Simulated assay, not measured.
Amino acid sequence: MVETIEELDFSRKISKNELLGVLKQEASRIHMHDIMLASAYIQEDAKYMHAGYREEFIENFTKAFINRFKDIREDKGNYEGHINNKKFQEFLEVLNKQIKGSKLRSELYFLRLAKIVSIYTTFILEASIHPVGTSFPGGFKLKFENGVYLCPVKDKQMNTPGALCRFCVSKQDKSVE
């Protein structure tokens, strides 16, 4: 049985259920201390944000991050279909480049956890990478309306090298353009 993301065989179709099993294996190796270090990075990363926005961001993002991680561990769902191997490999390239470039220990822990969470969200749930309600500069928030995730910054981030926006199912919120 495949136990890590790196062991996946991209020469064949990978089912969502197989990927979920691998993510559960990866998640089982994450400890509370790792989550605490990742949370510390979220706080450190947000230190230059506007004060009012910063506190809300840290609280919402940390809560959503931890809840999503818990969801992975407890997910007993049966997911139809296969992942898009090409898109998944491109996604991993972006994430692995970020991990290799991490300078802080807390950043490394955050990126390792974010890798598991973002893969789960993007390829298993096919949901927005950022949680609904995530605030962005300008007071805009990610919304879910009529079965569509609406992101206020999607189009502006599509060509940002380290951004995962190009893989996210969210659509640009046209009311923000």
Results as ranks from 00 to 15, higher is better:
residue 1 M to T: 10
residue 3 E to F: 15
residue 3 E to I: 15
residue 3 E to V: 15
residue 6 E to R: 07
residue 7 E to W: 00
residue 10 F to H: 02
residue 11 S to G: 09
residue 11 S to F: 07
residue 12 R to T: 12
residue 13 K to I: 04
residue 16 K to I: 00
residue 16 K to E: 04
residue 18 E to C: 03
residue 18 E to A: 01
residue 27 A to C: 08
residue 33 H to C: 06
residue 33 H to I: 04
residue 35 I to G: 00
residue 36 M to R: 15
residue 39 S to I: 00
residue 40 A to F: 11
residue 42 I to T: 06
residue 43 Q to G: 06
residue 44 E to F: 04
residue 44 E to L: 09
residue 45 D to R: 11
residue 45 D to S: 15
residue 50 H to T: 15
residue 55 E to H: 12
residue 55 E to D: 08
residue 55 E to I: 12
residue 56 E to R: 15
residue 57 F to G: 12
residue 58 I to W: 05
residue 59 E to M: 11
residue 60 N to T: 14
residue 64 A to E: 03
residue 65 F to A: 03
residue 65 F to L: 11
residue 66 I to W: 15
residue 67 N to W: 14
residue 67 N to Y: 12
residue 70 K to P: 09
residue 70 K to L: 08
residue 70 K to C: 09
residue 70 K to V: 09
residue 71 D to R: 08
residue 71 D to S: 11
residue 71 D to L: 14
residue 72 I to A: 05
residue 73 R to N: 10
residue 76 K to G: 10
residue 77 G to E: 08
residue 78 N to M: 04
residue 79 Y to T: 06
residue 79 Y to V: 00
residue 81 G to M: 02
residue 85 N to M: 04
residue 85 N to Q: 08
residue 87 K to L: 15
residue 87 K to F: 08
residue 87 K to C: 13
residue 91 F to K: 02
residue 94 V to I: 05
residue 94 V to L: 01
residue 95 L to D: 02
residue 95 L to N: 06
residue 97 K to P: 01
residue 107 E to Y: 00
residue 108 L to S: 10
residue 109 Y to V: 10
residue 110 F to R: 04
residue 110 F to P: 05
residue 112 R to M: 11
residue 114 A to N: 08
residue 114 A to Q: 03
residue 114 A to S: 13
residue 114 A to T: 04
residue 114 A to G: 02
residue 115 K to W: 07
residue 118 S to C: 05
residue 120 Y to C: 00
residue 120 Y to F: 07
residue 125 L to Y: 12
residue 126 E to R: 07
residue 130 H to P: 06
residue 131 P to H: 11
residue 132 V to T: 11
residue 133 G to A: 07
residue 134 T to S: 14
residue 135 S to Q: 14
residue 135 S to V: 06
residue 136 F to P: 14
residue 136 F to E: 04
residue 137 P to L: 01
residue 138 G to Y: 09
residue 138 G to Q: 05
residue 138 G to S: 04
residue 140 F to E: 05
residue 142 L to V: 11
residue 142 L to F: 14
residue 144 F to W: 08
residue 144 F to P: 07
residue 147 G to I: 09
residue 147 G to W: 01
residue 148 V to T: 08
residue 148 V to D: 11
residue 149 Y to K: 02
residue 150 L to N: 03
residue 152 P to H: 04
residue 156 K to F: 10
residue 157 Q to E: 13
residue 158 M to K: 13
residue 160 T to H: 14
residue 160 T to R: 12
residue 163 A to I: 10
residue 164 L to E: 05
residue 169 V to P: 05
residue 169 V to F: 00
residue 174 K to I: 15
residue 175 S to Y: 08
residue 176 V to R: 05
residue 176 V to P: 06
residue 177 E to T: 14
